[in-house]
Each structure stands twice: as C-alpha cells, then as structure tokens.
Design a protein around this nucleic acid. Structure first.
Lengths: 245, 245
DNA sequence: CGCGATTTTGAGCCATGTCAATCGGAGTGG
DNA sequence: CCACTCCGATTGACATGGCTCAAAATCGCG
C-alpha cells in the first residue's frame, strides 16, 4: 500500500480528494467508504495527451481517473471518428480488451493521472474493501451506460443546436461535483472537432451552431473555456431529450 | 422445476430449443451447460404485441426471450421516439427499474414468450446452475452493450442507406443462428416507422431509401419479409461502420 | 518570426425533413 | 357482398439543415 511521504505532490492529493468526492457522489458511498476507497489508491499512472490508454495492456484493466479527460471513441476505416462519450475525474474508465470486438478505444484528451483498478484490488486487504471496489466499478459502468442512451437520443433525434447544448450541459453537471464549475464557467479541453466527432456533425457546422448560440447570448466557448450565460434557456433547448416514459 | 407433460406445446418446446442454441452460440456455452440452462426454464410468460414489458414490475427482472421480438426505446416529451435496439429470441432482455433513470423501456413488437430470469435463479438448485445463469446474463448484457456502440456509429456517421443496410445486416446475422434465415430471407416485424425511429430518420426518408435499394436490386422488403438479394454488395455498403482501431 | 493547429467565413449543393395527399390491404359490421 | 375504417406504404412538391470545398484569419508555441 502507498505510504504517506512517498512524494505525491499536494496537487495530486487535492485531485485525488476531488475525484473521491465525485465518485462518492455518483456511486453513493458513505463518507467512511469513500475514505476507504481513496486510501486504496497507490501508484498513480500518467499518460500524455493523445495517448491510447489500455492500447497495449494484455489484460483489460479499468482505470480510476484522478485528473484529466479522456474520450471513448472508434476510428472508422475511412478515417472518420466517432466519439461515444467523455470520461472525467472521478469516473472509472471501463476497460475493454485492446481492440477487443467492437468496443471503444480510450483516448487521453489531456495529461491524465489515473489509478489502475486491478492495483487497487491487489492493495485491498479486506474482503470488504474488495467488494467496495467492485461495487464502485459496477455502479460507474451503469452510469456510463445510461449516458450512452442519452447520447443515442442526441444523435437520433436532436438538431445541431440541441446536440451541442445538451452535451455541454451534461459536462457542466458532471464537472460541478468536482468543484470545477464557477459561475457557470468551466474548462473543457475540447476542440470543435471533438464536438463534431461526438455529435455526428461536421466541424464547420459545429462552429456555425456555436456562433449562433453565442450571437443569441446563450453561451461563450473560447480557448477551452465554456460559460453558460443563460442556463435556464439552455436547459429548455436540451429538454427534448428527457425521457417521457 | 417444470415437469414434462405440463402442457407446454411442441411449438414452444421447439422455440425453447432454438433460443437455447442461439444463446449458447453468443455466450459460448458448452452443450452440457446449454442443456442445463434450458432445463431451468419453468413458467413461460406471455405478452401481447404492444405490451410494455417490465412496466409494472416493482423489481426489475431480466427476461430470457423464447420467441418474439421486442425493442428498447424511449419516448420523448414531444412524442418522438428513439429505438435503441431490438431484442430477439435467445437474447436476455436487460431489465431496468421501470421508468428508472434514463434507461429504456421494453416494448413487445410481436407476441412474446419469455422466461423470467429471477424465476430461473429460484429454480436453480445447485450453485453451479446459479452461476451459469449469472454468467449468461452478464455475457448477454455485454453483447447488447457492444451493439449499442455500433448503433451510435450508425447514427453519428452513416448516411441513410448505410444505416438501413447495416441494421438489416445486423438482424440477419442475429437471426441466422436461430435458423430463421433461409436463402437470405427472414421475417422482421418492423414497420418503416420502426426503422425510422431506430435510425434517426423520417419515415418518408426511410421509405425512399428502401425504394432506392429495391430499385438497385439489392434487397426486397415487403410484409415483414426481408430478402437480401446482393449480400456482398450490401456488406460493402455497411462496411464503413467497422472499427479500424 | 514562423509554423502547425484551430477557428472562422463564404458559396453552393445535396441529403433529408415536412406537409399533404393518395393508395392498398385487412378487418369489421351490416 | 358492400361500405367503412384503420394502418401502413407510397408519392410529389417544396423547404432547409447540414455538408463540402476552399480559403483566410487567429492562436499557441518554439
């Protein structure tokens, strides 16, 4: 197990606490369990932006994200790309066999710090700790799966503006528990091309859509910084995706 | 446990065998395990076409489909509908809490015969049988999830013709193990509206797309009967969706 | 200062959506 | 057997959202 004083920076410690809080929120851990979970994190793995996480691992292993963003995506034979979703700190990135079946690859969008879940399981001494980890992984997978349904609705039923808005709102709501949203402003390491690939739109059209939203004074998006100027109005735009049954 | 002679029709017995074979194929069960699994099926539940399966159950319970089709879908507030996927005999329909979160509802497209998985678990006497059921459920869920990625790619990257073709090919390939495909012909209880709702297209455009494919002599689709006239050509059309990474 | 990555713009086209009507078959009641 | 109705398939005319191509502007960075 990791021992205090082994040189983990204060910054990483802070990120670890934030990730723990976020995970505890989504997975509904008691404060005690959250603390238990956090202490299982030993070696921190790092990946540079652009890295394909898990691309080389012989065995698929889930990663608990401490800081940084990554996306689940697939490259098509004609070089088009579909992004299935984004993973943020606190999430546990599902690990699929590298190039296994039709499962997505994991691409780091920023520098990434994460903890290998199988390492956490090895660290866990008590049965109680192991089942805690398993439960957290299962619960996260379920939430990620749930988001995928929303994404399908986005792609299948929404207009360009609705797609952009509902995705940005999803990100806002996921970043809020990490305390990364201040005054409806947050950083997102997304280029317009990322948005296009996620939303099934062309880069040019994403840009035009953002331009319109900006012109209407609904939001700002520059330099990886998003500001939702009229959150209520934006929620209204995205509301079509909510389930009625 | 169910006893022979309780009045299950020969037809249902046949369907049960086909469903078992299909499940064994996708989940990779040994013949012995498949037989074990099949014998756990006791009471057969029936639903009429149009029924919302699991809509009323207090507890979510997965259903092993013996015969009939159903779809996973969500109704939007403005009455639009998104179909996430189709479930066929042999599949184990994932059960989500009724109206639970943003998970999909299950809609029977035909008359449906299925077995409640929790009933199978109760029937199971041996630990080995229970873990067999759990493994089968888990493996099926994984496959269903995998298909969802394909569907996202369809919606995000494909043109109308590619969407229609790749969906029909998926159905063909899933029906084949059930021995329901003869000479590249199979029955599918799908209206053009179902296709439209699944593929994120308008009904009218689905029709025009089918008309074009028909005019090119690539396929037939009438009265719930699909014939793939030029399978190779069709695979070529749909091939763009295959993962390159 | 120069380069690669990203954003921004314009022009024109085409895929797909909308609206509105018709058509055909299957069931149903008289 | 006919009249009626309902549902799904079919069609045409027309509108438009989103795409492509191509170029310029801007930004971040070494």
């Amino acid at each position: 197990m990791w021992q205090p004083g082994e040189g983990r920076s204060a910054w990483v410690e802070g990120a670890l606490r934030a990730a723990t809080a976020a995970l505890a929120g989504t997975v509904k851990l008691s404060p005690a369990d959250a603390e238990r979970f956090r202490l299982l994190a030993g070696k921190i793995e790092r990946y540079p932006p652009g890295a394909l996480v898990n691309a080389l691992a012989p065995t698929p292993t889930a990663k608990w994200i401490i800081s940084g963003w990554l996306c689940q995506m697939r490259i098509l034979p004609d070089a088009r790309r579909q992004i299935f979703g984004f993973l943020l700190p606190g999430d546990i990135a599902p690990s699929h066999p590298p190039s296994g079946g039709n499962f997505p690859s994991l691409l780091a969008l920023t520098r990434l710090e994460c903890v290998d879940v199988s390492q956490m399981l090895e660290t866990a001494a008590l049965e109680r700790e192991r089942s805690l980890v398993h439960a957290a992984v299962a619960a996260t997978l379920k939430i990620i799966e749930e988001r995928k349904y929303d994404h399908i609705v986005r792609l299948g039923q929404h207009t360009a503006a609705e797609r952009v808005v509902s995705l940005l709102l999803e990100l806002r709501d996921r970043l809020a528990p990490l305390d990364l949203v201040h005054k409806e402003t947050f950083r997102a390491p997304l280029t317009q091309e990322h948005l296009a690939d996620a939303l099934g739109l062309s880069l040019v059209h994403v840009h035009r859509t953002l331009k319109t939203l900006r012109a209407k004074g609904l939001l700002e998006l520059r330099l990886g910084r998003v500001t939702l100027l009229k959150p209520a109005k934006l929620r209204e735009i995205a509301a079509e995706g909510v389930a009625a049954i």
